[in-house]
């Protein structure tokens, strides 16, 4: 069986993560920033799953009953759950913001100073 080299996954993940960072840094729309954050989280998820599979395959060759390397997939589930919760809260905040100032442009938001 031909296994895809881990490098490919890494490249993909880094690319996604970078897109996410650049998006967060450059965009002003809160929704898009939010999406970029999700993008970064998922980039990490891809990486976690890829490494998990790799480690598991290596261990499986020696011992058929091993569970080595599966923990990372558990982390992925955690991240997804947390991300979901965060989206709920975050979107709620954005909705509230929109109601108050009729905009989701973060450059208008400098109340944190106070």
């Amino acid at each position: 069986m031909q296994v895809m080299p881990i490098n490919y996954y890494i490249f993909l993940s880094v690319a996604l993560f970078t897109i996410g960072i650049v998006g967060v840094l450059t965009r002003r729309n809160a929704i898009i920033i939010f999406m970029c954050i999700e993008l970064m989280l998922n980039a990490v998820n891809v990486l976690l799953v890829a490494f998990s599979k790799m480690h598991h395959l290596n261990a499986f060759a020696a011992d058929q009953l091993t569970t080595v390397g599966t923990e990372a997939q558990l982390f992925v589930f955690f991240i997804m759950v947390v991300a979901a919760a965060e989206v709920t809260v975050g979107l709620a905040i954005i909705v509230m913001l929109y109601r108050n100032i009729h905009s989701v442009d973060i450059n208008f938001l400098n109340r944190l100073k106070h």
């Binding site: 960072i21 967060v24 840094l25 973060i106 938001l109 400098n110 109340r111």
Partner: peptide, 14 residues
């Protein structure tokens, strides 16, 4: 340093 601009905070963080 604390401008209140979320963008600048994030930039600083990164």
């Amino acid at each position: 340093l604390q401008s209140g601009q979320v963008g600048s905070y994030v930039l600083l963080m990164v």
